[in-house]
Amino acid sequence: MSDTIARIGDTIVQQGRHNDRIYVMKLAMHDVPGIIDRLKEIALENGYSKIFIKAPESGLNHFKTKGYTIEAVIPGFYRGKEDGYFLARYLKDSRKKEPKKDQLQQVLKKAVILAGFRRPISLEPDLSFRIAGKDDAGELAKLYKQVFATYPFPIFDEAYLKKTMEENIRYFCVSCKDTIIAASSAEMDREMKNVEMTDFATHPDYRGKKISGYLLHRMEEDMLKEGMKISYTIARAFSYPINTVFSRAGYTYSGTLVNNTNICGSFESMNVWYKPLVKKTL
């Protein structure tokens, strides 16, 4: 059962048992500070163990005084001007403990060593790239089911994919002949000019061909045309391949979200990486 997305005031939140959390996806600052206590009430009523929020610097002190801690920071996250903070409040001590810290650091260290070492990437002759459309939704859902045991959003649902295509998410895919073998998505916040590069999946038979790196490059080109200023990702902290993809592409590590997401069958910590798509001018 997937978590639900709804509004509290004008703030968009995801909540549910699947991820055992409340995730404030888009905070409306005029809902602050009142929403802070309301979020805690909802979490306690449902027994959730974490509240996760993306908030601008202008709201930071409101959350810090209520027990929130900073897990990641992205400079210029809002319109390229105001920094964005990824904040967490844990309602159960077990949720804020990462038992495999050493392994996490090893993955991160290896990825950072390769920072910026992006080489020209091209697809093999039998592979082709395109932006996915609604007719591809069924095949995309099938691929995601093959790759992920669980996922924080209902990407296994063809109807969900079609709905989000109409809203703020653009899907990209690579095909072999007429079969989609890799995919990704760009979730745009057009108002705040940032985009999350996410939902990367490659069929097991086609891994090791640098397809995710190719997809990311094409996504960046497309998002730059859409006027996005900051690109970021929330990547599985123990996945060396995906962290390396972003490190090689010039992304900067900015923090780890502890036990944040139900993905691939269990709760996992997630690394945040970011990259300005537009260079600042003096």
Rank of each mutant, 00 (worst) to 15 (best):
M1L: 11
S2Q: 12
I5G: 01
I8F: 04
G9A: 11
Q15H: 13
N19Q: 08
K26Y: 08
D37M: 04
D37A: 11
L39P: 04
L39C: 10
G47H: 06
F52Y: 13
A55T: 07
E57G: 12
G59W: 02
K64F: 05
K64Y: 04
T65H: 09
K66T: 03
E71P: 02
A72V: 11
G84H: 02
L87C: 08
A88P: 01
R89Y: 11
L91R: 11
K96W: 03
K96G: 08
K109Y: 06
K110V: 07
K110I: 07
V112N: 05
L114E: 14
L114N: 10
R119V: 11
L123M: 09
P125M: 09
L127G: 03
D136W: 00
D136Q: 04
G138W: 05
E139P: 01
L140D: 00
A141Y: 00
K142Q: 13
Y144W: 12
Q146T: 13
A149C: 03
A159Q: 13
Y160E: 04
M165Y: 05
M165E: 03
E167Q: 14
R170Y: 11
C176A: 14
I180F: 05
I180C: 03
I181A: 02
A182Y: 00
A182P: 02
A183M: 14
E196T: 04
F200N: 00
R207Y: 07
K209Q: 15
K209D: 07
I211V: 09
S212W: 01
Y214S: 12
M228R: 05
I230H: 01
P241K: 06
P241R: 06
R248M: 13
G250Q: 08
G255S: 07
I263K: 02
C264L: 13
G265I: 07
F267L: 15
E268P: 04
W273Y: 14
T281P: 01
T281L: 12
